[in-house]
Design a protein around this nucleic acid. Sequence first.
DNA 1: GCCAACGTTGGC
DNA 2: GCCAACGTTGGC
Length: 154
Amino acid sequence: MTAKAHYWLMKSEPDAFSIDDLKRKGHEAWDGVRNYQARNFMRDGMNVGDKVFFYHSNCAEPGIVGVAEVATDAYPDPSQFDPKSKYFDAASSRDKPRWVLVDVKFVKKLKRTIPLKELQSEPALAEMALVRKGNRLSVMPVEAAEWKHILGME
DNA sequence: GCCAACGTTGGC
DNA sequence: GCCAACGTTGGC
């Protein structure tokens, strides 16, 4: 794993866990990721201190609402071992955990939501996975130039 | 709530 | 290893 700093975007449904929840709690174990690509980004790409855009999905105004920071290295997601959890995975074992998570901590709320619509209309962001049709990744990398550009839209 | 897009599963 | 069926995501 390289020590290169990365930027990321992580999606959450505000009904389940919003930027205000993160602000109130200060930090959160980002459990429930059950997609291999998203897992690999957390496991192989993330470093403590990396900055993360917090994105609200599946809501009235989807968009980027805040900034968080990676607070831990990846470790096994405990919910995969809990038969009562909706994230339980019977095919995973403690010896060979299939799913990992990182903790994220609150950095700030943006002054306003930057709506998906605006992100889609920015030529500088056309390459982002987020704005491409049909994308469903819940954890994705963001280029440094894209990061700066988006912060400039606040 | 609808449905398009996409990942995963499982029959063959 | 193909691919149809199925489940999930997420914008609208």
